[in-house]
Structure formats: C-alpha cells, structure tokens
C-alpha cells in the first residue's frame, strides 16, 4: 500500500504542477503593475479591449499590445509617436508620455476590414500644464461651405491639364493667382473661370488656362508634402478610394456607384452593416476634383462624409498632413510633368 500512496502522490503532484504553471504565470504577470494590456480585435470581434485610457501629464503609460485575430496597428492621432504593428499572438511593448493635458485619439493603423476605421479609442490626459491649443476654426466653416451639397465643376478641360506646360504661362498670370487664400477657398474650375475672364489672358487657349491652373496648384504643393500625402493616401484612403483614385477600392466593392444627386446633406449615421452606402467618387473624373476647393476637401477629411461611410480624420491627422493629402489628391486630376499635347479625349 506504500507504493499505491506514492503513486497517488505522484499523480496529484503532477496534476497540481500542470494546474500551477498557468496559474502562477498568470499571478506573476498580474503583478507587472502599471502595464496596461491592450488587445486589438477586428471591430466585428469587439475592437480595442480598452477604449479609454486614463493618464497623467508627464507620467509614462506602459502598454502591452497584442492582437487576437489579424494584423493591426497602434498609433496616436496628431502625435509624433510612430505607428506600431500589432501581430496576432505576439506582444509589442511601448511607453507613451504626454506633456499636455487633453484628449488624444489612439487608432488602428493597418486596415483590418471594412470597419477598420472604427477601431479608435481615447487617451484622457489630466494634470498640470498648458492644454492642447484648440484648433483654429477650419476654413470651410469660416467660408460657410456646405460640404454635403453636391459640387461639380462648372467647366472641365478638354484634356488633362499639365503643370509642366502651365509653367510657360507663369509670367503672364496676375499676382492674386498665387495667393494662398485664393488656392484654399476656390476650386480649380472657379480659378479657371476667373482667369478666363481676364482680358490680358485672352491670347491663351482654354487648355492653356487649364495648364496654368494646374501650375498654380502645383505651386502650393511641395515635393515633401506630395510624398507624405501619397503615403497617407495609400495607408488610409486607398482601401476605399482606390489606389488610382477611381473610387474602386477593395473595401467598397459591390456598393452602388456614387451619384451627386444621391448625395444627401445627411445627418443619417450609417450603420456598421454598410446599408445605404455608395462607392466614393472617381477622383480621376475632372468634374469631381476640379469642382471642389481645398477648403471643402479639408472639411470632408476633418469631419468625414456624414452618411457616406467616409470616416472623420480630424482627431487623427495634423493640418499639415491634411494639406499634404489634399495636394496629393489634385494629382489625380492634373499632370505634374510636362505632357505632350495629344488629341483630347
């Protein structure tokens, strides 16, 4: 019977060890205080495991990031904190420190399905210090632009306008043509109409004036901004708007084609089911982009397109980033380099 007792003890001890390893491990990891484990999941599976993170000014927050399903990313809106990849089953540690009290937005930075942009949470930072300065009123509000009203270009060029060709006419342009305010608050079509009306430009053909407009637009975009805009567009916008801007991105397949007359100045918030959504407009159609001003585009980006499925990027992008994206967007309608003039299509 001594052996039997020994055998029983062996079984019990081994089973206890088997139970003990995970329990002790769990207990020990619980003591890693001040570390917040943040699980990323597709919005359909619950989104971020923590939606609001409380923090104090100057006190570091230790985050342990992991994903329960697919690749996600972690980034803090309007901050210099680099975006981190979150891989399924693996852990990424990071530390955040905030100098200014206020509300920050953390968000998923890698596309994880049609509802990817819903993966957003808040970091509430309290404590001493100057709060984040409030944003100046966006231009579209100052100008009173109804960004939900349908906007189509009154006039469009016979062929894609080229900034390269437009450079030839740069010396003939009036001074106001290069003013920042004119650029920001007018659509290319509006500027074309104004230039066309100038008698001193009557020697230029319609297409020459369009080339001049393209050149003007290029003057407001630095190469760095275009590059940054291109990256931002690829990672954030292209999944819906399409890599070539045609509004045919992978996330909007099967949605009805956009039609300006359907565009409601809606207050209808769309459902996660995607009911009632339409595909985004085709940026390569000159009627679309040449009819909208940078101010309006900025408004759309900041506020999102109510009822259209377009997310709001106000808490995510800095105004430089938004301007960069806008500069990049116009390249869908203008050629930047000199293009040989062929038959118009």
């Amino acid at each position: 019977m001594k052996k039997e007792g020994l055998a029983r003890w062996i079984v019990i001890l081994l089973v206890l060890a088997a139970v003990g390893v995970p329990l002790v491990g769990w207990w020990l990891s619980k003591d890693l205080a001040a570390t917040l484990e943040l699980h990323a999941r597709m919005p359909e599976n619950g989104g971020w495991s923590v939606n609001t993170i409380q923090a104090k000014v100057g006190q570091p927050i230790h985050l342990r990031l992991t994903s329960d399903d697919v690749v996600h990313g972690f980034a803090v809106g309007r901050s210099d904190h680099p975006a981190l990849d979150i891989l399924p089953g693996e852990f990424t540690d990071t530390t955040l420190t905030f100098d200014q009290p206020g509300k920050y937005t953390f968000y998923c930075s890698r596309w994880c399905g049609a509802n990817h942009w819903r993966m957003r949470g808040t970091i509430e930072v309290t404590g001493e210090g100057d709060p984040i300065p409030p944003d100046p009123q966006p231009l579209f509000l100052k100008l009173g632009i109804d960004i939900d009203a349908p906007q189509t270009a009154e006039v469009t060029p016979g062929m894609t306008a080229s900034a390269g060709r437009g450079a030839l006419f740069a010396s003939q342009l009036p001074a106001y043509a290069l003013e920042k305010d004119i650029y920001l608050s007018n659509s290319p079509a509006k500027v074309w109409l104004r230039l066309r009306a100038e008698t001193f430009l009557s020697s230029l053909s319609d297409d020459d004036v369009w080339d001049a407009v393209a050149w003007i637009w290029q003057q407001h975009a630095t190469p760095e901004a275009l590059k940054s805009g291109q990256e931002l567009y690829a990672t954030n916008c292209a999944a819906c708007h399409g890599e070539s801007g045609k509004g045919d991105g992978v996330m909007v397949r099967g949605l009805p084609v956009w039609d300006p007359s359907l565009h409601t100045s809606g207050d209808v918030t769309h459902q996660p089911t995607g009911e009632g959504l339409v595909s985004p407009p085709d940026f390569t159609d000159p009627k679309v982009l040449l009819g909208v001003s940078p101010a309006l585009l900025e408004g759309k980006i900041i506020r999102g397109g109510m009822g259209t499925g377009m997310p709001y990027w106000g808490p995510i992008f800095t105004s430089e980033q938004i301007q960069a994206v806008i500069s990049y967007l116009y390249t869908f309608s203008f050629h930047s380099q000199e293009q040989p003039r062929g038959p118009s299509n």
Partner: peptide, 15 residues
Amino acid sequence: VFTILSGLMGSVVGS
C-alpha cells in the same frame, strides 16, 4: 490537464 488549461486560459491565437 495542462493542455485543457492552456486551451481555456491561453492565447486565442491558435498558433
């Protein structure tokens, strides 16, 4: 027993 526990308590990522 350990397998059962790790299945219940461990990562939801199978690999």
